[in-house]
């Protein structure tokens, strides 16, 4: 099957690569670019571990082909901190103990970024509903909700 050439921006850097059409965006990020901060937890679009931003909005990168990202801008957990400064959500996840094993964390933080972009001061229930596409097996979610609220309070959505 014919490969396709794609050009896209990932974490602020432009890349051009030939990829097989069947290659998933998450596989492109991990296997071609070596951006292993984005993780794969399932194969049915349930767990959200692979969540990244495409043009500023969250998507599950296991449920998008790399070829579909041609011409778009992708942000992963590895591109979230700017100038060595942690994003307020990254800081809040640490301070609120919102992660244990860390496997859901990249996706959870990226979804939280998207959530706060759409609703800068959510209620706890809105935070929970905004994270419904992300599974965590360690935390029981309580500290994740607290972390999102802490970041919202610090104006993370700005």
């Amino acid at each position: 099957m014919a490969s396709r050439t794609i050009t896209l921006t990932v974490d602020g850097v432009s890349y051009t690569d030939d990829v097989e059409p069947r290659l998933l965006l998450v596989q492109y990020l991990r296997e071609v670019l070596g951006k292993t901060g984005t993780l794969v937890g399932c194969d049915t679009t349930n767990c959200g571990a692979c969540t990244v931003l495409v043009d500023g909005e969250s998507i599950k990168s296991c449920t998008m082909l790399a070829v579909e990202a041609d011409g778009h801008e992708v942000t992963t957990i590895e591109g979230l901190a700017t100038d060595g400064q942690l994003h307020p959500l990254q800081k809040a996840f640490n301070e609120c103990h919102a992660l244990q094993c860390g496997f859901c964390t990249s996706g959870m933080i990226m979804q939280s970024v998207s959530l706060l972009a759409e609703n800068s001061r959510p209620t706890d229930q809105e935070v929970r509903e905004g994270l419904e596409g992300n599974l965590c097996r360690c935390t029981g979610y309580q500290n994740i909700v607290a972390a999102v609220q802490q970041a919202a309070g610090e104006g993370a959505a700005r």
Partner: peptide, 26 residues
């Protein structure tokens, strides 16, 4: 036909379908 893919891609990943051509409407 790929129209967002939120149902199609899970099906393809599980190999419950194996099309020869995928046409994206994006």
């Amino acid at each position: 036909v790929l129209a967002g893919g939120q149902s199609l891609l899970p099906v393809l990943k599980l190999r419950m379908a194996d099309p020869e051509l995928v046409v994206s409407l994006q």
